[in-house]
Structures are given as structure tokens and as C-alpha cells.
Design a protein around this nucleic acid. Structure first.
Length: 164
DNA sequence: TGCGGAAATC
DNA sequence: GATTTCCGCA
């Protein structure tokens, strides 16, 4: 039986996307490519983009608000998403529809007033990534990706973001 | 721009 | 089940 927390076959992204200052909880990165048919999910993909500096011009965390991010280039994000899912006809209109479905799932929220701005609900995310959460939290699992700690996610980006 | 129903698709 | 596609509405 496999545990809910990715600890052994840690499928964490190759290379290193751990940008200093922007450290994500390990469990946020569950296996995307499971031997079967489990495709990557949109919120996973968004998280992936948000951690890479090379995509800071298309999507980035919003300073000040916890878990809030802004899509600076909706078209580009849609293109990247479409490429990942082999959907060349993807666009922001369709992508945003998928995002809207997350409202009910309580994965995402919309920051009204701000254009292309959404907000992650990490309370929900950690549950999705670590099913064995309700059990209890071991003092400290050595070398385990699933730790017992509060979601400390989007810090204040060290760099300055294009102010409106 | 953003929302959400509905049918289709994987 | 999670989108993708299409579309009318505010």
C-alpha cells in the first residue's frame, strides 16, 4: 500500500526549482505522472509556474496577500497549459473556466477587483496532497516530504514586482 | 472581464 | 473525475 505522502519515490521536480525565498511545502508537489492516467492538474501546473523565475513575467505571487497570485500574461499561461495538455487550442477563456470550477472545490478563490488575480486555498491543497493528514503528525520524519507544519507559502518576493 | 450551465472528452 | 469546449448573461 502506498502512503499518501510522497516520501520514497519522491517525484519532486528534477533539477531544482527551490528558489530561495520562495519555498513551497514539499507535499504540494505530489506525483504528477502516475503510472496510469493521472494527468497533471491545473492547480499543480500553476504552482509549478509560480515557483520558477523564468515565468515571473507571465505569472507571479502577489505581494501582501497570502497565496494570492496574478496572471500577467493570460495568453502565455494558456499556451503553456495547452502545451502541457496537448491542447493547442487552449486559451485563457477556457483555462479560466477550469479555474472557476476550483471555486466550488475550494482550491481557489477569486480576488475581485484585481484583474487576473486569484488566490490559493492552501488549507485545501495540503489535504489534497497529503491524505494521511488527519491521522496525526509524527514528531519529525527524517527525510520525509510530509512534515507537520503550517502552510508557509508565498513570502514577500525578494525582488520587486511590477507595481501597477 | 468574469461567471456558471451544459455537453463532450479524456 | 477533471477538465475542455461552447455560449449566454451581468
Amino acid at each position: 500500500m502506498q502512503r499518501g505522502c510522497p516520501s520514497q519515490g519522491l517525484p519532486v521536480l528534477p533539477g531544482s526549482c527551490w528558489v530561495p525565498g520562495l519555498v513551497f511545502p514539499d507535499w504540494a508537489y505530489k506525483a504528477e505522472s502516475s503510472p496510469g492516467s493521472r494527468q497533471i492538474q491545473l492547480w499543480h501546473f500553476i504552482l509549478e509556474l509560480l515557483q520558477k523565475e523564468e515565468f515571473r513575467h507571465v505569472i507571479a505571487w502577489q505581494q501582501g496577500e497570502y497565496g494570492e497570485f496574478v496572471i500577467k500574461d493570460p495568453d502565455e499561461v494558456a499556451r503553456l497549459w495547452g502545451r502541457r495538455k496537448c491542447k493547442p487550442q487552449m486559451n485563457y477563456d477556457k483555462l479560466s473556466r477550469a479555474l472557476r470550477y476550483y471555486y466550488n472545490k475550494r482550491i481557489l478563490h477569486k480576488t475581485k477587483g484585481k484583474r487576473f488575480t486569484y488566490k490559493f486555498n492552501f488549507s485545501k491543497l495540503i489535504f489534497l496532497s497529503c491524505p494521511a493528514w488527519d491521522a496525526r503528525c509524527p514528531s519529525s520524519l527524517p527525510g520525509t516530504g510530509c512534515l507537520c507544519r503550517p502552510p508557509a507559502v508565498p513570502p514577500g518576493m525578494p525582488s520587486q514586482v511590477g507595481a501597477p
